[in-house]
Design a protein around this nucleic acid. Structure first.
Lengths: 160, 160
DNA sequence: ATATGTGCAAATCCTTTGCATAGAA
DNA sequence: TTCTATGCAAAGGATTTGCACATAT
């Protein structure tokens, strides 16, 4: 689900290879090309979903994707939305986030980063990697190696 | 869901108050007393579930709890298991963990700590706080303050 | 032409809920 | 007695699945 990670001598956690970020102005042709480069056949529905998802780094649930497509007058089945998002995730085009047990969230920002989760509003925002630095990290259990790190900073409305 | 947290000047994240850890040998009387001290009426079912959960720091799903009780010849309804675990979580006796979107996981280790998640086996193990130290932390978004930090180190079977 | 996707509805799985009964204070 | 918890079964919601039909190469 997550990419390949590596802990540098500086204890900065960084992705082993930062794959290209889907470009912001996601034209249909552009998205189709991106999908092809990931070995994904660019069908109409996949390109539509891709255009939505890759238009900007964002956090979307399957329901949310379906809703936005419907609002744009594009008819896609729920099954296809799930199939497509799962496929994108499997191929590393989006990342699946588990902050909310209620529903899965797909993050179109696949570069290494962490999250703020507002426990009052449910809002999810990105934390850029440079904002965090470890001076000490645990050793993985015997026989295992690090595959990724997920950090969620739970924040709440400031009191008083 | 999580306790009250505070970032010290040393950038070590620590709980504002570490509440007493439920003792390991969790006798029925002991558990009943513990529940009372948390304002929870110690019914038979709650004490049974408490004895199971507090016997040692562990990660259990609702299904798992029900299964173990059933194996011990104790009949408790699924609804009561969920009610009880949610109650314990609300009162801070256990912590709910979101590593796996499949099912909720309740952690009877409520002291501040993080997790290794083995993506091959699904196994969850604790990472003690002293194993991690930040030398830089992000500032929470405007109008919010830190309420907690969840860190999951995804590990996998060592290659080769 | 052949392999691959899509849509629909039903199935699945986890979790919650409503309500009558049983138990705690 | 009076409030609260329990159990059952049914409801709820997110996600997957099976299969016939449509589409890509």
């Amino acid at each position: 689900m997550c990419g390949d990670w590596l802990v540098s001598p500086l204890l900065r956690i960084m992705p082993r290879m930062s794959h290209q970020h889907p470009p912001s102005p996601a034209g249909a042709e552009h998205v189709a090309e991106l999908l092809r480069s990931y070995g994904i056949i660019p069908t109409f529905q996949r390109v539509e979903i891709g255009q939505l998802v890759f238009s900007s780094p964002q956090h979307l649930s399957a329901e949310h994707v379906l809703e936005r497509l419907t609002m744009s007058g594009i008819r896609v089945s729920k099954a296809t939305v799930y199939n497509t998002l799962n496929l994108f995730a499997a191929r590393g085009l989006v990342r699946q986030i588990n902050v909310d047990p209620e529903r899965a969230c797909f993050d179109s920002n696949t570069s290494a980063h962490y999250h703020f989760h507002n426990i009052d509003t449910g809002e999810l925002t990105d934390v850029a990697i440079p904002a965090i630095e470890f001076s000490r990290l645990p050793s993985p259990p015997p026989g295992t190696e690090l595959a990724g790190v997920d950090i969620v900073f739970r924040v709440k409305r400031k009191a008083g």
